[in-house]
C-alpha cells in the first residue's frame, strides 16, 4: 500500500514576494507533523498522467490546515502550476508527513544554527514558528542567504524583535543600500564561531577530527562517527545545525561549517534538488 494519499483543498494563496507563494491547504484528519518535515504533492492531468514533488511544511499544523511555500522553477512541471495556476477551492493530493531526520524537536533545549538558501527558508521558518508556539527558549540563530532584497520570504515575521532569535540576512547578489557586508555567497566570516569542543568527550561520541587534518577531511581509521545515531545527551547541548536549500548552497555551507569546526554529526541537511 504505497503511500496513502489524502485530498487537500487550496483555501488561500498569498504572495511572499514577486515569485514565491504561500499556499494554505485544508487536509481533513491531518495527523500533525514535526517542524522540518515535508509532504509529497500529487497532481493529476485530465488523461490520468500524474506528477509528484516534495514540498516542506512551513508551519505547525493548525488542525487540518497545512502551509506550503512554493518557489516556481522556470519551466518546471509542478511548481509554476502550484504557485500560480491551481485555483483556490480546488483539490490536490498529499501524502505525509515525510522525513524523520531534518526535524527539530521542540523539547530540545540546546542552541540551533539555521542556514537557509532561497526556498530552503520554508522548513526553517517552520522550526522558528514551532519554537515560538512551544514557548521554547532554545537560542536560535538564522543565517538566511537570498539573492536580492526583493527575494526575501516572511519579511515582517523575520524582522519582528525576538530576544533569543537572531536573524542575519546575507545577500548574494544585491544588498540594500548601507549594508556593511559585501554581497556574495556565504563566507566563513559570516558564521558564528563554533561551540568549544567538549572537555571530556561522552562515551560513544564521534572522535573529533584531529586538528591537523585537512579541512573537511574524515579520519580514515577508527569507528564510524555517531552522526546517524539518534540524539543523545551530548547532542542535546551542542549547537545543532540545519542547512537547507539548493544542492550547491548546502554543499558549500556544509563544507564551511565542517571546516570551521562544527561537528559533522550535529549538521543536518536537506537538499532541494
Amino acid at each position: 500500500m504505497p503511500g496513502s494519499w489524502r485530498s487537500a483543498r487550496l483555501v488561500a494563496r498569498r504572495p511572499e514576494n514577486a515569485t514565491a507563494r504561500t499556499l494554505l491547504l485544508e487536509a481533513p484528519s491531518w495527523p500533525g507533523h514535526l517542524p522540518g518535515q515535508h509532504v509529497d504533492v500529487r497532481l493529476t492531468a485530465e488523461d490520468g498522467y500524474q506528477a509528484v514533488r516534495s514540498y516542506s511544511l512551513a508551519a505547525p499544523a493548525d488542525g487540518g490546515r497545512i502551509e506550503l511555500g512554493i518557489e516556481p522553477a522556470l519551466g518546471g512541471e509542478v511548481s509554476p502550476y502550484l504557485a500560480d495556476t491551481l485555483p483556490v477551492g480546488a483539490d490536490v493530493e498529499v501524502t505525509g508527513p515525510l522525513g524523520g531526520w531534518f526535524v527539530w524537536h521542540p523539547e530540545r533545549r540546546g542552541p540551533v544554527l539555521l542556514m537557509a538558501g532561497g526556498a530552503g527558508i520554508v522548513p526553517v521558518i517552520a522550526m522558528v514558528r514551532a519554537r515560538r508556539e512551544a514557548g521554547s527558549t532554545a537560542p536560535f540563530h538564522l543565517l538566511y542567504s537570498v539573492r536580492d532584497p526583493d527575494r526575501v520570504w516572511y519579511q515582517d515575521e523575520l524582522a519582528a524583535p525576538d530576544a533569543s532569535l537572531r536573524v542575519d540576512t546575507l545577500y548574494s547578489r544585491n544588498a540594500p543600500p548601507h549594508t556593511p557586508r559585501l554581497p556574495g555567497r556565504v563566507r566563513a566570516s559570516d558564521l558564528p564561531p563554533p561551540p568549544p569542543p567538549p572537555t571530556s568527550p561522552p562515551s560513544g561520541t564521534a572522535p573529533a577530527a584531529p586538528s591537523d587534518a585537512a579541512p573537511g577531511t574524515v579520519p580514515s581509521s577508527g569507528p564510524p562517527s555517531s552522526f546517524p545515531s539518534r540524539e543523545g545527551k551530548e547532542a542535546d547541548l551542542g549547537t545543532q545545525c540545519y542547512v537547507c536549500g539548493p544542492t550547491g548552497f548546502v554543499e558549500h555551507v556544509g563544507n564551511l561549517l565542517v571546516t570551521a569546526g562544527y561537528p559533522p554529526e550535529l549538521i543536518r541537511t536537506e537538499r532541494f534538488g
Binding site: E77, G216, V218
Partner: peptide, 27 residues
C-alpha cells in the same frame, strides 16, 4: 517506476555534510 519523474539533472540526497575522503588513505 510508480510515483517517479524523469530528470536530466543529478540531484543529491544526503543527511549531513559531504565527507572529503582522499584516495591515498581510502580503504
Amino acid at each position: 517506476p510508480p510515483g517517479q519523474y524523469p530528470t536530466e539533472d543529478f540531484p543529491v540526497l544526503s543527511a549531513g555534510p559531504t565527507p572529503n575522503v582522499p584516495t591515498d588513505s581510502w580503504t
